[in-house]
């Protein structure tokens, strides 16, 4: 029989990866926002979330009362910042985008720095999906510059990868175990891939369009679909190996 035993007593997500995920998701929101009225509430929310994270760390170091107070205060600051953005007289679509990004960031933070132990993975998945929706909507509706949208989308993917790693490590070995080398190796590899993704996207955008044949476009779309199918991972039964 193989496979790890059930969850550890303290399945807190790995802290370094959680930190990277938080920075990346917040970076994605900032890169994806085009209006200062979007950026300001996000910055305020980030301050609140930083307090929330700090409070969590204090609670783990046995300053339970102070930690809980700081966590609560941080949460209030973050939600008030997000709620107050409604008063900034933003048009509906940027407001919705801001709310999606802001609440996504909040969910990701609550997922990787959990106040309540359960639902870490659900929170991060939902949060990343909201931020992704926000940054792509900004690119689509607000016409954000390509480089900003590319950086935002890439950072969303980076935050998702690191958040997944944090949650998985937490579930496998727990918050008390030493995990830094795994987190560092994974974060460095993912950051490298993210950099390649940004460079490649911007490079492709610079290729001048030669023709405008609909047949050519159709073939390119077919190529895209088949490539994506080739890259899909399908579930499989574990195979015994020697």
């Amino acid at each position: 029989m193989s496979g790890l035993p059930d969850k550890p007593t303290d399945p807190t997500p790995a802290s370094a990866s959680a930190g990277v995920a938080f920075v990346a998701v917040f970076g994605a929101c900032i890169a994806g926002s085009t209006d200062p009225r979007q950026t300001a509430p996000l910055l305020l929310e980030a301050i609140g979330l930083t307090l929330l994270i700090g409070g969590g760390l204090l609670r783990r170091r046995r300053y339970r009362l102070v930690g809980s107070a700081v966590t609560g205060f941080g949460f209030i600051v973050a939600t008030v910042a997000l709620g107050a953005s409604v008063t900034l007289s933003l048009p509906l679509s940027p407001l919705l985008i801001l709310l999606a990004s802001g609440s996504g960031t909040l969910l990701v933070t609550l997922g990787v720095f959990p106040v309540y132990g359960r639902f870490a993975r659900s929170f991060t998945t939902a949060g990343v999906a909201l931020v992704f929706a926000g940054v792509t909507a900004t690119a689509l509706i607000d016409g954000a510059p390509l480089w900003r949208s590319t950086v935002a989308v890439t950072m969303v993917l980076l935050s998702w990868d690191t958040a997944e790693r944090a949650v998985t490590l937490g579930e496998r070995v727990g918050g008390a175990a030493e995990t830094r080398s795994v987190e560092l190796a994974g974060a460095m590899a993912s950051s490298g891939v993210a950099l390649i993704a940004i460079i490649l996207t911007i490079a492709v955008s610079r290729i001048p369009a030669i023709g405008s044949s609909i047949g050519g476009l159709a073939l390119l779309l077919v190529a895209t679909t088949t490539f994506l199918l080739a890259l899909a991972h399908f579930p499989q039964m574990p195979t015994p190996r020697q």
Partner: peptide, 30 residues
Amino acid sequence: RWISAAGGILSLCAGLAVLVAPPIGGALHW
């Protein structure tokens, strides 16, 4: 996976060829 990848490469090459050489594109009727 390999069949999909091969199909993708063929489609990509064909698509680029069509876009690079407009006469081929003109010959294709959508």
